[in-house]
């Protein structure tokens, strides 16, 4: 039981990170119907910017008060990662708007390779370790198992991740449902040409979608950095695929679906590692995806597609 609760907490933490990345996938897919393969690498870029900014603040400028440092790091990495997201869209996807479906997918894969190798060349291929910054946590309860005492702990780090995710999710839902920008986004999702005729600036709306996705990915990148303390140029690939899996699992195009899918993938991975084998955790996540899609072809929260004859 105690073990279960601990795994649940770990799973929710990991799932929050996946969910934040998955939102970027799902928003882009919703609005222009493409798999933005480079999004995982935008997440990686975000983590690198966060790391560099953190070092500037702590070792160059000598700031010591951690909450302020983290807040500045968060904002800076969101802003700069957004610029990356905007540029990727502008250079690799916008020229192909209205082209056929596979072209932007290929440029996205090309972009992903490009970004990975840009970071590898400019920052080196070796992993960057960052010692844990936020220590301690709340002990929820203690219990005994046959192997000895077990402590169920919610670390402050996990608490921060889960709370931040919830706050961002709420903010985003409001943004999409209540603001003019959100309305423009939903209009573009339904019918881009009609939205343009009605005076929606489609290019700007799509750019902003990429910017928002990148900003959330930057948050996920910072969290990943703080949680695992190790990043390299390759983290974007697997996290990206998992997050995309999460978006599809939840029903692509649906924001709550992306979050739900992220949490589920996180939970599946953690529980599988906890109770079965660590090696096959990816197999478990992908198998669940395949099974869900076979029986529920539009994901958990996606709108079912009615075949128009």
């Amino acid at each position: 039981m105690e073990y279960f609760v601990q795994q649940l907490i770990n799973g929710l933490t990991l799932g929050s990170i996946y969910g934040l990345i998955a939102i970027g996938y799902t928003m882009v897919y919703g609005i222009i119907g493409m798999i933005n393969f480079a999004h995982g690498d935008i997440f990686m870029i975000g983590a690198f910017i966060a790391l560099a900014m953190f070092l500037i603040l702590t070792s160059v400028l000598g700031f010591a008060f951690l909450p302020v440092v983290l807040l500045i790091v968060l904002i800076v990495s969101m802003v700069f990662t957004s610029a990356w997201g905007w540029t990727v869209e502008r250079l690799a996807y916008r020229p192909l708007r209205g082209s056929f479906r596979l072209a932007p997918l290929i440029t996205a894969i090309g972009m992903s390779i490009l970004l990975q190798n840009f970071v590898r060349v400019s920052q080196g291929a070796r992993v960057k370790p960052l010692p844990p910054q936020i220590q301690g946590g709340v002990t929820l309860f203690e219990g005994n198992t046959e192997t000895g005492a077990i402590v169920v702990q919610l670390s402050y780090m996990q608490l921060i991740i889960i709370v931040t995710t919830v706050v961002l999710m709420a903010g985003f839902t409001l943004l999409i449902n209540k603001t003019a920008l959100g309305r423009a986004q939903r209009a573009c999702e339904q019918d881009r040409r009609m939205a343009a005729l009605l005076g929606v600036n489609v290019d700007r709306t799509i750019s902003l979608t990429f910017v928002m996705g990148a900003a959330l990915a930057a948050v996920a990148g910072l969290m990943f950095l703080l949680l695992y303390g190790v990043i390299d140029f390759y983290i974007g690939f697997l996290a990206g695929i998992k997050a995309f899996t999460a978006a599809v699992l939840g029903g692509i195009g649906s924001l709550p679906g992306a979050m739900l899918g992220g949490l589920l993938i996180g939970l599946i991975e953690v529980f599988w590692s906890g109770y079965f084998t660590v090696e096959y955790k990816d197999v478990a996540a992908f198998s669940i995806l395949a099974i869900v899609l076979i029986f529920l072809p539009s994901g958990l929260l996606g709108k079912p597609e009615v075949e128009k004859v």
Binding site: A92, G110, M111, S112, L114, Q116, N117, F118, R120
Partner: peptide
Amino acid sequence: MLIFGLAMV
């Protein structure tokens, strides 16, 4: 690989 990715795009 950097140039490869760039060429693809």
